[in-house]
Design a binder for these strands. Structure first.
Lengths: 333, 333
DNA sequence: TTGAAAGCGCTAACAT
DNA sequence: ATGTTAGCGCTTTCAA
């Protein structure tokens, strides 16, 4: 089969025996086109299998109806991305998602590529803390919203979870069940959420008058590091009786490593995940409100599309404790 | 802050005091540009914060380096999408993913939008069985690859899992552990994989000489339907002692509904999922090879980019049984 | 209501 | 090694 040249608007115009402008009108549903011509053009369009070139279409200006989403990962579940998509669709927008793979360079690359393609807006789950490369785009009026963590060095609308409140809730929950030696095991502190959660934990401990020595373990989420931290937490001179984990990956790795021993420790995880309810014991978690985060991000984006001069705002979305069993165990005697 | 007009190549050329063509050369890393001019242009680019307009850039032809992926869902985990992204990146391609929400109209809309934007290729997880709308694009040479299920009415390269072999393996595994009354609970048969798996199950039963009456339960994956099917399977006159579930969602819903009673039934699930190993008992599954599926899809796409005349091919990717405990239980006496 | 012509920002022949 | 000049496929003034 030989490759047929893609028909252009000119081909359609010739086929229909009308001017280029008329085809353009028909494609854009311009009501000022006579029925006769409109039909003739439509026939030509279907006959040739014409589809408009969206690149050229928007070269002159106008909305593309596309929103870019640069997120860390496409492989694991991403509830916020799902919410973004649903809400955006409700506004006639389509979300194009791409992965930053947690690499700053990659983020820059994909985000600039999106900007270059002149999407109507960009939702970003920022990696790193330097987003100066976006300044020219922001000046040019590209709407950008950051979520989960703030972007660095630029002023953009932002949606984050209330990490401190979440840690506080988890902490008080465990204290309420009699725990005094509570440990924290989470992400690296160079990551925004990792830092916020670890810092909030330290603040809780300080406020309750407990020493934190040997109880705060931020770091990379690798089996080795988690295993070492757990060993320090559980087999030290004054073992912890309860554990707060800083994200879903950490929680899962902890459970995997602990196996049956997980039943001897009270655990509250930050971040809910599918099947947390099917584990035994079922996992008590601090759940982020992904739907609200996604909806808010799209709302901020749309507001900025409408009004470039709006003051930049940061929205903090509440979290909630989901009690399922793992966090209600009293300290071992 | 007032909105600054986005600088164009012409602005850069004027600022640097060179011709437009020279700027174009610098942007495209053309080695035939003198160092002096190259530096002058680079300075102008950073000074103005210029970023090229990708739409115009590729209007003339050439690759955009973008691959569109239209998948059912962006919210749940999607290992194939992850694999697509990683492999594509290895070839200098960026994956833009968008959700079809399992709606045929939506699929058509997003796929045509991608075609209109002239991406280098499209990877599609087809919804429905009529994809004639893609014919003009295929004629025009847009590379398209379907995965997980075939596209309907068009000839495109396709990657699917070996569903029949997977069901066969699960079936023989359970038979090997002494089960005779084995039930199947899966997706609707109007869905390709739902049909393939149910049909393979029926074939296994027939080959082993067992009657299938009351044991095959395809249908929508809703809590109500699953509960009713389980009731029929477990509380009928001749209850099943083992169960094959047709996809991850069904498996999870079954476990959720059965609760502790899940421990009295041998279960093999089609599709692996995160945490299947952390459940008690851990879940024995037929795992699809997402990495190979993703890699093959990108390979087929790249081959077609190179040669439009290649004969269309369908690649069937093998599955493997992951033994974890839930499928090795003997039948209750 | 329809058409002719001028761009949109860029790349690619074709000079120089 | 650098500049000139046509377009790419479309939208958009501006005429008719």
């Amino acid at each position: 089969m030989t490759r047929r040249k893609r028909p252009t608007m000119i081909d359609v115009a010739e086929h229909a025996g009308v001017a280029l402008r008329t085809v353009s009108r028909v494609v854009n549903n311009d009501p000022t086109v006579g029925t006769t011509f409109a039909n003739r053009v439509q026939a030509a369009i279907t006959a040739l299998g014409y589809t408009p070139d969206e690149r050229a279409r928007h070269l002159r200006g106008g909305r593309s109806g596309l929103v870019g989403a640069a997120v860390r990962n496409l492989s694991a579940g991403h509830p916020v991305l799902g919410a973004l998509d649903v809400v955006a669709r409700g506004h006639g927008l389509t979300v194009l998602a791409t992965a930053t793979a947690d690499e700053e360079d990659r983020e820059r690359e994909v985000v600039l590529s999106m900007c270059g393609r002149h999407l109507d807006g960009i939702v970003l789950e920022p990696v790193g803390d330097n987003h100066h490369y976006l300044s020219p785009e922001l000046d040019a009026g590209t709407p950008v919203v950051a979520f989960d963590r703030p972007a660095g060095g630029i002023m953009v609308d932002t949606v984050v979870s209330d990490n401190a409140a979440g840690i506080g809730t988890a902490f008080r929950h465990l204290r309420g069940h009699g725990h005094r030696r509570i440990a924290y095991l989470g992400d690296e502190e160079r990551i925004f959420t990792g830092h916020e959660r670890a810092a909030a934990f330290r603040a809780c401990m300080a406020a309750s008058g407990e020493p934190v020595t040997g109880l705060v373990h931020p770091g990379v989420v690798t089996p080795g590091r988690i295993a070492a931290a757990l060993d320090a937490i559980l087999h030290g001179p004054d073992p912890a009786t309860a554990l707060i984990t800083g994200n879903a990956a950490t929680t899962q790795e902890v459970l995997r490593h602990l196996g049956a021993a997980a039943a001897t420790l009270a655990i509250v995880g930050f971040d809910d995940f599918t099947l947390a309810d099917l584990l035994r014991p079922a996992l008590t978690v601090v759940a982020q409100d992904s739907d609200t985060i996604g909806r808010t991000a799209i709302e901020l984006l749309r507001q900025r599309m409408t009004d470039h001069t709006r003051p930049v705002q940061t929205v903090t979305v509440g979290v909630r404790l989901v009690v399922r069993g793992s966090g209600e165990r009293p300290p071992a005697p």
